[in-house]
Structure formats: structure tokens, C-alpha cells
Design a binder for these strands. Structure first.
Length: 554
RNA sequence: GCGCCCGUAGCUCAAGUGGAAGAGCAGCAGCCUUCUAAGCUGUUGGUUACAGGUUCGAUUCCUGUCGGGCGCACCA
């Protein structure tokens, strides 16, 4: 039996019970589904429906809950699902439902039957989501902040796909403009320096050592033949080198984008001018002080924005507008962008542009991931790309490993600043919670490999023997897994999955300490083997969604 | 000055569209002859920054105050 089916059928029974309360005209608007109480003593599923209808019934919620509790089993019986519920009772106004052993045990069979498909849903709609994230400028290595976006975006995409949605992971590549020019100038200066030619370093150039490394590489590759090469050549070389580096780190991290959209392509294909023309036609542009302005205040922004500078160059806003216009034209139903905290001010102006173009701005959703601050020896590490003082995403990956890095990044909500303690992450990685989860998985695998029970007994055990409290807790968590996935996906917030896995693992460790799986009693042993096999399946399933390995040995 | 985010146990943080305050670390006391001790058990720790408001109910929503982070370009 699937969790969603259990919820749905029980909801129907509850709906009937509510409908038959005296004095209620319509129940349609009063039903909000089930909650899973944090405290298991409050049952497996809980409904706050009494609170919603208390006012219109002019009855205290506690009284309503009691009435519902009295009748709930009767309605379950009528719906033919009486065997699913042990008891229903009213507590503090909630209707708390305690699932029967039968239905919980059936969840185990569901896990084993659907294997890695457990908790996932089939295609719900043809709507496609465009998820844009990282999108770091190819002027330097990825920072730890980009790493956070990479982790969040990648897992978000996996979560949404697990819920039957089509997702395109997209990287917006800023491959031209002033910063690329500055990278080219920096590279050129370093290159000439390597050749022993004195060349002043550009004032706002990139001071990072990686530029010097690349300059040395250019000397090895081209000798002095680039001495008189135009700036454009260095811009191209510098950018391509950074792009290779970025792609290589992302690959190491286990993240592959479905689409790379380049700003240069937007321009050369005429899409930027096209977008400007459309804005012009809508009367959203005007000339002032020698520049062209986008009248974004008309569409909710707090000030108008320059879109073409006095010198005739476009600001970054122009390609950004063209980019979002293009994404809507591609037919995406929803544009989901992960941006850094320094970009929150841009939401209003991009949305304003969408409104000006008569596009559905409410289908553009921007999630801001808060800052990542690095600390070393208890002190914050200064981060400046231009000055070249920073710890890169690659360095963290190399030191901490993919698994721990991913888990670490996903342990906080997006809204919460992430304090990345390098000493802790690097030197004490055994204490990272990811090992707690992986250890549970490895322990289970170890037991399974030692079991000598014949296969047939493993497949047809008497699961009714799983009646210890620790066994029931495990069953409860397995039951909850699909709900967790749905909630995380709906909220565009992956960190709940790490929280879930830690709790599931804890339940297993507690079970493991108290009970033996391999016993002289073949019946009980078989039942427990099936239980831990299902637990292992869900842990592996969850870790896989996080892009983290599930080791069989540790 | 304006905007966004944050403020929960000594520290780092959780807490399903408002729903019944939790974990880890640190401290203390225990548990390996037995499927992996990277584990488990017990214990200490709270006016959820403060003041109001809405609500049956507020850590959650609204207003204000205080404190912290980030952003407010004809830079990207």
C-alpha cells in the first residue's frame, strides 16, 4: 500500500465524518489533509480539521475532535479500510489516528516492491520547469557560495523529478562584457610578465594566482607567439580556461547541467535587440541624460533602470531580460532561479521586465540562497575574488570529499546563512553527520551479508512479528518517507531530506542496539531481515537523491 | 535612509501551508565474549532578542524596537 493512497482513503473517511457533523453546510473548504505529529505518542497521522470548523460550528475544537474520534472508525468501516486503523482519539483538539500494524507492515512490502521507485511519483503534468543556478561568471574558480547553490540546485532538481516533474538544469554563462575583458587584460599582463616583459597590471584586474598559473600554461603552450596577440585572444583563452575548470569541478561534484545558455549567443542571435525592441513597442523605454532607461517603476520596481549607457553599451539588465524572455518563449511553465543574496535587488527589475512584456511574472520564482561564510581557526576568511583571497569550492571538495560536502551544504535551510567551518569540515570529517547515515546503511548491509536464511523465507516472512516499539518506529519512518519527499519538493527546500535521513538512521541505530536481527528463531529473524532490508532501501534511496554514496562497508 | 535575510539550550542549528518546543556538539555518569562502539542509554540545559497585535492556538503571520549579515551603479 502506498503512503499517498493511505492518506487519501483516510481523508475520504474523515471527510465523510466531518460532513455528517450537525450544523455544517459545506466541508469542501475545511479540509486540509493530514499532518504527521512529531511526537509518535500523538499517533501516526493527525488532523487539525476541528480547529478550522470550530468557529462556524460554534463548538470548541476539543468537542468536535471527540465527536469525530467517536465516529471515525465507523466511517473507515464503511469505506472498507477499518483494518488500517487501530484507533482514533481526540487530543487537545486534534484528531489523532494510530495506524494498524497491518497497514504499516504493508509499507515494507511496498518499499521492497518498488525499490528505488519508492516515494517517487509518476508524471503529474507535462509542465516543464527551468531551474537555473550557479551561473558563476567564468572569470575565476567557483567559490564555496557557488558550491552551496550547486548542491541545493542539483538536489532540488532530483527532488522535483522524483515527484514527476520535468526539470531542465540550466547554467547561464556570462561569456562577454567588462569582466571578461578584465580577465583578458589580467591574463595578458601576467603572460607578458612571464616573458620578462614589463606590463602594468590592470587596476581592477583579477589578482588571483590562477591567472598567473594560466599565464604560465600559455607560455608553455604558445611560447612567445602571443606577444602581439590582440586582447580578444586573451579574453577567449582566459574564459575557456575558467570554463574548463568550472565544468571539471562540477563534474567532480556529480553535477551535470542539461543546458548552458550563453550571453554571447543571446546577442549574436539577435535576441537582445529583439527584447529591447519589444520593450520599446510597449513604451517601457525612454531616453534621459543621454542614456536609455527601462521604466521599471511602472511595474513594481523602486527606481527606473538604465538599460543602455551613455557610451552606447548595454547594461547587464538587457541580456538578463532577453534571457528570461527566451526561457518563457521556450515554453517553460515555471522559471525557478537560485540566486545569491547579493542579487535579491534584481528580482524586482527582472519581474518588472516580464510584466512589461506581458509575461506571467508570477511564474518566475527566485529563491535566494543566503551567504556562506568560511571560518578558519575560528576567524572569518576574507573573500575577494579580485584580490585572490579565497578558498575555492574545489579545495573544499578535495579536502572534505563529495559526500560530506553535499550533506554539509544541505543541512541548513536556504534562508539561513551557512557557517562553513573549514577546520571542522576538513580535520574532523568523521564527526560529520553524513557518516551517521552512511554508517546505518553499512551496518545493515553487513547484517544482510551475514544472514544465511534461505531466500524463500526472506520473501515470505510473517511481518506481524515486528511488534517491538523500535520496530514500529522504523515502520513509521518508512511510511513517512514519501510525505517528506513531497513536502521538500513543494517547498523547493531540500534540507528536509537530510533531517529525515538522520532521524531514520537514528531509529535504526536504536533498533540495532536493542535487538538482534540474526536469531535462532527463523521466523522472527526473517521478519527483521525484511524490515532492515527496507530500511536500507530507503536510506540508499534518500542518499541517492542527495547525490551521496551509500557505502556497503565503512 | 530604503530593501532582503537572520535572532530558539553554553556552541552549531531543526521544528509540514500558524498546530502539541527538538537534535547534534560540548559537560557529567554508564554500555563492546554476541549481526560494524563512526553506535547506544541516562542526565544537565528554554520568558523561542524585546514590546504589542491577529488567532481556539504564534518560533511561525502583522506592526514597532534592538542586535547581526547582505544589497541598494550609466559594475557584472
Amino acid at each position: 500500500m502506498q503512503t499517498a493512497v493511505i492518506e487519501k482513503r483516510l481523508s475520504e473517511a474523515l471527510c465523510l465524518a466531518v460532513q455528517h457533523l450537525e450544523g455544517l453546510s459545506s466541508t469542501e473548504e475545511f479540509f486540509w489533509g493530514w499532518e504527521v505529529p512529531k511526537d509518535p505518542s500523538f499517533g501516526d497521522l493527525s488532523s487539525p480539521v476541528s480547529f478550522r470548523i470550530a468557529a462556524s460550528l460554534k463548538t470548541p475544537p476539543q468537542v468536535i475532535a471527540q465527536k469525530l474520534a467517536d465516529k471515525f472508525l465507523t466511517y473507515c468501516e464503511a469505506a472498507g479500510i477499518a483494518s488500517w486503523v487501530d484507533r482514533a482519539c481526540a487530543q487537545s483538539g486534534f484528531l489523532n489516528v494510530y495506524l494498524s500494524h497491518t497497514v504499516l507492515v504493508d509499507v515494507v512490502r511496498e518499499v521492497l516492491r518498488r525499490k528505488s521507485g519508492y516515494g517517487k511519483r509518476q508524471n503529474r503534468s507535462s509542465a516543464a520547469i527551468n531551474l537555473e543556478f550557479v551561473s558563476a561568471n567564468p572569470t575565476g574558480p567557483l567559490s564555496v557560495a557557488h558550491g552551496r547553490q550547486a548542491a541545493v540546485g542539483d538536489v532540488l532538481a532530483r527532488l522535483l523529478r522524483s515527484q514527476g516533474l520535468r526539470v531542465t538544469k540550466e547554467y547561464y554563462l556570462n561569456d562577454e562584457g567588462r569582466q571578461i575583458e578584465m580577465l583578458g587584460r589580467s591574463l595578458k599582463a601576467r603572460y607578458l610578465n612571464e616573458l620578462g616583459i614589463s606590463e602594468p597590471f590592470p587596476e581592477e584586474g583579477y589578482h588571483g594566482l590562477y591567472v598567473i598559473d594560466h599565464a604560465k600554461k600559455c607560455v608553455r603552450r604558445f611560447g612567445s607567439s602571443l606577444k602581439a596577440a590582440p586582447l580578444r585572444r586573451f579574453m577567449e583563452l582566459g574564459m575557456q580556461d575558467q570554463l574548463l575548470e568550472i565544468k571539471s569541478v562540477l563534474k567532480k561534484f556529480g553535477l551535470q547541467f542539461d543546458r548552458w545558455t550563453s550571453q554571447r549567443w543571446l546577442r549574436t542571435s539577435g535576441r537582445i535587440e529583439q527584447a529591447l525592441q519589444q520593450l520599446q513597442q510597449k513604451g517601457a523605454l525612454y531616453e534621459a541624460e543621454g542614456a536609455t532607461w527601462f521604466a521599471s517603476t511602472r511595474y513594481g520596481d523602486d527606481k527606473d533602470r538604465v538599460i543602455r549607457k551613455r557610451d552606447g553599451e548595454l547594461t547587464y539588465l538587457a541580456p538578463d531580460i532577453a534571457y528570461h524572455l527566451w526561457k518563457f518563449q521556450k515554453g517553460y511553465q515555471k522559471l525557478l532561479n537560485l540566486w545569491g543574496p547579493d542579487h535579491h535587488g534584481y528580482i524586482a527589475r527582472v519581474k518588472a521586465a516580464m510584466k512589461a512584456l506581458n509575461l506571467p511574472a508570477d511564474r518566475l520564482l527566485v529563491r535566494i540562497t543566503q551567504l556562506v561564510t568560511l571560518t578558519r581557526h575560528g576567524k572569518p576568511v576574507p573573500m575577494s575574488k579580485r584580490q585572490g583571497e579565497f578558498v575555492t569550492f574545489r579545495e573544499v571538495l578535495d579536502e572534505v570529499g563529495v559526500d560530506a560536502t553535499r550533506f554539509f551544504y544541505l543541512m541548513r535551510t536556504l534562508d539561513s546563512p551557512l557557517d562553513f567551518d573549514l577546520d571542522l569540515a576538513k580535520s574532523q570529517s568523521q564527526e560529520n553527520p553524513v557518516y551517521y547515515v552512511q554508517y546505518a546503511h553499512a551496518r545493515i548491509c553487513s547484517i544482510l551479508s551475514k544472514s544465511r536464511l534461505p531466500l524463500r523465507q526472506r520473501l515470505r516472512p510473517n511481518l506481524n512479528l515486528l511488534c517491538e516499539p523500535e520496530e514500529r518506529m522504523l515502520l513509521r519512518w518508512l511510511f513517512q518517507y514519501p510525505i517528506t519527499l513531497r513536502l521538500c519538493a513543494d517547498a523547493f527546500e531540500p534540507h528536509g531530506l537530510t533531517v529525515f535521513l538522520r532521524k531514520l538512521s537514528e531509529s535504526f541505530h536504536v533498533f540495532y542496539t536493542k535487538h538482534r536481527v540474526i536469531l535462532d528463531d527463523p521466523q522472527r529473524s526473517a521478519a527483521r531481515l525484511v524490515l532492515i532490508r527496507a530500511t536500507q532501501g530507503v536510506i540508499a534511496n534518500g542518499l541517492s537523491l542527495l547525490g551521496i554514496s551509500a557505502p556497503r562497508k565503512m
